[in-house]
Simulated scan of single mutants.
Amino acid sequence: MPPDALALYATVILLLPMACFFLSSPTFLLVGLEIPEVTQLLRGLFNGYFIVMCVAGVASAVAYVISGRPVFAVGALAVAAVAVMARRWFLQHMDVELQARAAGEAAAVPRLRALHLKGMLLNGILLATVIANVPLVV
């Protein structure tokens, strides 16, 4: 396999989970986060997204190294590291807000919405960064 093709595949590996999250997360803007099932689904989406991004970052880094692009491998590992740290941060904060909402705190729902928007923003930044680097990969 040519190194350019392998590097392009590595980029696609990074882009796919980001694009899926980009398309699926706005649907939660249409429903109220007062509903426990909705927030559990949202928490599961965040958990799964960050796990998949960690795996995709490592897999992409390996592919970039094999294709002879170690700088992009470092970038892919940075994406994986961000995913590991963000997963822990987001899930801890979501759990705190879910407990607060269950205890009847009215301000917990807007804080859950803010966490949701922050997650969308983080994904948008990562997605834009990877897309901006596509011309450099090819």
Rank of each mutant, 00 (worst) to 15 (best):
G32A: 05
P36T: 06
E37Q: 14
M1Q: 11
A61P: 12
M85R: 05
V71E: 15
G57Y: 10
K118D: 11
L14C: 06
A83L: 02
F50M: 13
V52I: 15
V52R: 12
M1N: 11
L30F: 13
A100N: 13
A78T: 13
A80W: 10
G48M: 05
L8N: 10
V52T: 15
W89S: 14
Y9C: 11
V38I: 15
V130Q: 00
L23K: 05
L122T: 14
R87Q: 12
A108E: 02
V79A: 12
A73F: 13
P70G: 01
A108M: 01
E34R: 13
Q99T: 14
A5T: 03
V74A: 09
M94K: 03
P135Y: 03
T129H: 03
Q40P: 03
A10I: 00
G68T: 03
L98P: 01
R101Q: 13
N123S: 13
K118L: 13
I13W: 01
L136R: 09
T11V: 02
L23Y: 11
A86H: 01
A7Q: 06
R113H: 12
T129P: 02
P36A: 03
L136E: 12
V65G: 06
A7C: 05
L23A: 13
A73I: 03
V96N: 01
S24I: 15
A7R: 04
N47T: 06
L16K: 13
Y64D: 03
L126R: 04
F22M: 09
I35D: 15
A80R: 02
V58E: 12
M18Q: 09
C20A: 15
W89I: 00
F90I: 06
S25D: 11
A108L: 01
V31P: 02
V31L: 08
V109W: 10
V84T: 04
R69C: 02
A107H: 09
G75K: 05
L91R: 01
R101P: 06
T39H: 06
L91G: 00
A106G: 04
L127I: 01
G124K: 10
T27K: 11
C20S: 15
G119T: 12
